[in-house]
Amino acid sequence: MKRSYLYFLGTLIFIGVLIFPHFVSNYIIHIAVLILIWSYVSTVWAYMGRFGLVSLGHGAFLGIGAYTSGLLFNNFHLTPLVGMFIGGIAAAIVALILGYACFRFGVIGDYFALVTLALAEVIMLLIIALREFTGGSLGFTLNKMGNSFLYLSSDSKIFFYYLALAFVILSILIWKKIDKSKIYKAMRAIGEDELASASLGINVIKYKVIITIISAFLTALGGSLYGQYITYLNPHTLSGVGVSLDIAFKAILGGMFNIWGPTVGTILIVTMEETFRGIFGSHFIGVSEVLYGIALICFIIFLPKGIYGTIVNKLSKK
């Protein structure tokens, strides 16, 4: 009874999400696209996060993805449809090297967070240092292509809305796929007791590296998508510590252990940012961000399982 009710509600929400952009202004669609892109990125971040691999360096993968596909497109006229996969592979290679090194030497928990934080900073500095190709701190603008699906370029925001929606659905499907796979069982066991699972013959390093590579590859795709949408790449908005923390915050706030948690967190944070900006915007630049930061701290202190996670836990206990 209750289950069918949930399905009905889910279908209703899905239909609402599908037809929604045809009834609202361009500004609302823009915010919705941002929500979808960051939902996707924070969901694939949570692939790792929910198993205790909290990375504060996903800005690195985001930056690699966006800059690889963007530079290939601008310099060699390569379509981002191909470019984003090359970027994804580049990010996966970085993830393989860093992941293997970290897990081989047993770097876990907050130390893993610190190492990945340094990685994000390295990639950002690298982008700035290679300023002949990347435009340095000033970034660069993607060449105009008009409307072309082949080049993932469009003047209409609705195009990107559906594209980003497809990415979010993909990330949810992959989450479910992981849940059914051997990786999930292995990672759960490792999360419970790493030593015991290793002694039972689970290849701890292998599974951790696999999940890191999947997450990095998909994050890079998201970076490329974001670059195509904004059509302007800047090292500070696509890489570095700030973005990496933002991604993690969104997933943690919503609840990284639940499949819809990161999405709920993203909706909440982006809406909060835009609302605060709407209230304070022209008067005090920064006040909105201060309130946003305070709200974040409060959420971390009082709802450590995340908002969606806490609600789901409460409901399932009843």
Partner: peptide, 30 residues
């Protein structure tokens, strides 16, 4: 910030203090 999170996972301390970065930077911006 630190006192309420002393018993929480250490990662939460780290994240709450990272939230403080946003507060301090923007406060001085204002």
């Amino acid at each position: 910030i630190v006192q309420p999170l002393l018993d929480a996972p250490r990662l939460n301390q780290l994240l709450a203090l990272a939230g403080l970065i946003i507060v301090f930077e923007n406060l001085s911006m204002v």
